[in-house]
Simulated assay, not measured.
Amino acid sequence: MKLPRTLLLLSLSLLLPSLAAGAKDNSERFVDVEKQQKFDDQAAAIRQQMKPGGRFEFTTPEERRQVDEQLATITALLQKRSGSSLDDDDQLDIYAAQETANAILTQRDGRRLICEFSAPTGSNRKVKQCVTYADRVKAHKESRNYLRETMGKSPSAGEKIDGL
């Protein structure tokens, strides 16, 4: 089992510099172990942003638990390091935890812009409409609440409607 992990780590270490030089990465990394001294501050900031009103407030309780687990794994591995370099297995575990946390946080980022093409009513010409993930979730919740209130106040089948 040692050979495949070592081979994977070696291939990643060879590929990443060439990919970084060839293409500009526009994605933002929320969990980044490169700044090890500041990782505890970074983890605390991420946990704060997952609370209501934060950038990642739309994470589900299960996703919050997963991100917390990944941050704890990274912290434990970095503490294990204590001045010496990490072995290949630990580096791979840190990389996996970092990627898992970043995937969840990127998906639930309230500032993430979502664009789609849709045709307005009465037109065949599609228009590009962009909205942030936070605005989209809030609009969905407002619509659902409005429908719930409206359906609760609607007259039953036997009642008269004023004006009709």
Results as ranks from 00 to 15, higher is better:
M1D: 09
K2C: 05
K2E: 12
K2N: 12
K2Y: 15
P4Y: 06
L7F: 01
L7I: 09
L8W: 06
L9H: 08
S11R: 13
L12P: 00
L15T: 08
L15A: 12
L15V: 12
L16K: 06
L19I: 09
L19P: 02
L19V: 10
A21T: 07
A21G: 06
A21H: 14
G22V: 11
A23V: 11
A23W: 14
K24S: 12
E28F: 13
E28S: 09
R29M: 07
V31N: 02
V33K: 05
E34P: 05
Q36S: 14
K38Y: 11
K38N: 09
F39K: 01
F39C: 03
Q42F: 01
Q42G: 06
A44D: 07
A44M: 10
A45T: 04
R47M: 13
Q48D: 14
K51M: 14
K51H: 04
P52I: 05
G53W: 05
G54L: 05
F56P: 00
F56Q: 02
F56W: 03
E57D: 06
F58R: 13
T59A: 11
T60I: 06
T60H: 07
P61A: 11
E63H: 11
R64Y: 04
R64W: 02
E69I: 03
E69V: 02
L71C: 09
A72C: 05
I74F: 03
T75M: 12
A76D: 11
L77Y: 00
L77D: 06
L78H: 00
L78F: 04
K80F: 09
K80G: 15
K80Q: 13
G83S: 04
G83T: 00
G83V: 02
G83M: 01
G83Y: 00
S84W: 01
L86G: 03
D89E: 11
D89Y: 05
D90I: 00
L92W: 06
D93S: 12
D93G: 01
A96K: 07
A97G: 08
Q98R: 13
E99P: 01
E99R: 02
T100H: 11
L105G: 00
T106P: 01
T106S: 11
R108W: 03
D109V: 06
G110V: 11
R111A: 12
L113G: 03
I114T: 07
C115H: 02
C115D: 03
F117G: 07
S118E: 14
S118M: 14
A119T: 03
A119Q: 12
A119R: 14
P120W: 00
G122T: 10
G122P: 02
G122V: 06
R125E: 15
V127I: 14
K128I: 02
K128E: 13
Q129F: 05
C130V: 08
V131A: 11
T132G: 03
Y133Q: 04
Y133I: 00
A134I: 05
D135Q: 12
K138Y: 02
A139M: 07
H140Y: 08
K141F: 05
K141A: 15
K141G: 06
S143G: 07
S143W: 07
N145E: 15
L147T: 14
E149L: 12
K153Q: 13
S154P: 01
S154E: 06
S154F: 11
S154A: 15
S154L: 13
P155A: 04
P155Y: 15
A157V: 08
G158R: 12
G158W: 12
K160I: 14
D162M: 02
D162R: 10
G163S: 06
G163F: 07
